[in-house]
Design a protein around this nucleic acid. Structure first.
Ligand SMILES: [Mn+2]
Ligand SMILES: [Mn+2]
Ligand SMILES: [Zn+2]
Ligand SMILES: [Zn+2]
Lengths: 157, 157
DNA sequence: TTTGCTAATGAGACTCGATCTCAAGTCACA
DNA sequence: TGTGACTTGAGATCGAGTCTCATTAGCAAA
């Protein structure tokens, strides 16, 4: 991801705050800069840890308060992979409709986009009398590496 | 759903327990009978409440211990709709690969099956070098009723 | 049946991600 | 600068789910 797009996402979020009459605080700046300086999927706790490197005053509460703003702005996507914590994806500013396939054996996550999938989803929803607001296709699978070697990077194995 | 299929599911689960050298206790019987006497999606807490009507000695611990057995047997499906609790679906004995569309406004859940979706998922996974183990497509949407009347059954609205 | 082994149980402590409370601090605008 | 609403951090609290451990109860062999 180009640095250009990244700082664009940051700008968009600051504008989003302004539009909602929300204040641009040092803590929010630290959090947003953290979010848009990585391509990685992250947890709330990771975001807290990383943000504190930029501004040690960032608290857990502020991270948890800012995350809903980030998802509401559409720049970050909240995901549920069946763990007991949520995972956040900062790549939605640029790729708003991608999905994920997860290797249950090594926790690898691969992103993919599919026009046909989107079309099919809309078709199904329409037939059922719904208007799609969002969708999440989660595929749990076993990756090639696992099949080949029985290798496993998972903690505790 | 026919009572026939229901008691078949119950039998299947008891056989599953036997195969794994697990004991058929009164509590497990109460839980299983509860699960397969409804078509509704339910939470762990609901299952506890309902099971206790059949056997008041059923404990929360036993419900939470039995649920993984039910899902492992393939007769019940565990789902994540982005809430902080899981939802269980007893309709998988008969319809193993259906998906769900949820109305964000009134919490209505509609099930659907799609051959084309399944095919597409397998195709995508194969291209990425994965072997599908399970999938969950969640579509969040707005249902016809909501569009028409602006009605809203949701608690607190 | 009785016995004996072992799995299974209930009560309640505990975990941990997430939310809430509230007094203190700070941003934005005049 | 002053003002007031917005925002903050610390820590209490919540709630779904897990774990512990003393006790109970399947179940198969005798
Ligand atoms: Mn992604
Ligand atoms: Mn279902
Ligand atoms: Zn893998
Ligand atoms: Zn609705």
């Amino acid at each position: 991801m180009a640095d250009l797009e990244r700082s664009a996402a940051k700008e968009k979020f600051l504008n989003f705050l302004e539009q909602k009459n929300l204040r641009i605080t040092n803590q929010r700046r630290a959090i947003v800069e953290t979010v848009f300086s990585t391509d990685q999927h992250f947890t709330a706790e990771q975001l807290l840890e990383w943000s504190r490197k930029r501004d040690s005053s960032v608290s857990r509460a502020t991270v948890y308060r800012t995350l809903p703003l980030l998802t509401e702005s559409g720049l970050v996507h909240e995901m549920d992979f069946g763990k007991d914590y949520k995972i956040y994806d900062p790549n939605y500013a640029d790729h708003p409709n991608h999905n994920h396939i997860i290797c249950d054996d090594c926790d690898k996550i691969v992103e993919f986009e599919s026009e046909r999938l989107e079309t099919l989803e809309n078709e199904i929803s329409q037939n059922l009398g719904f208007t799609v607001k969002s969708q999440q296709l989660r595929i749990n699978a076993s990756c090639e590496d696992m099949k080949k070697l029985g290798a496993c990077n998972k903690k505790g194995h």
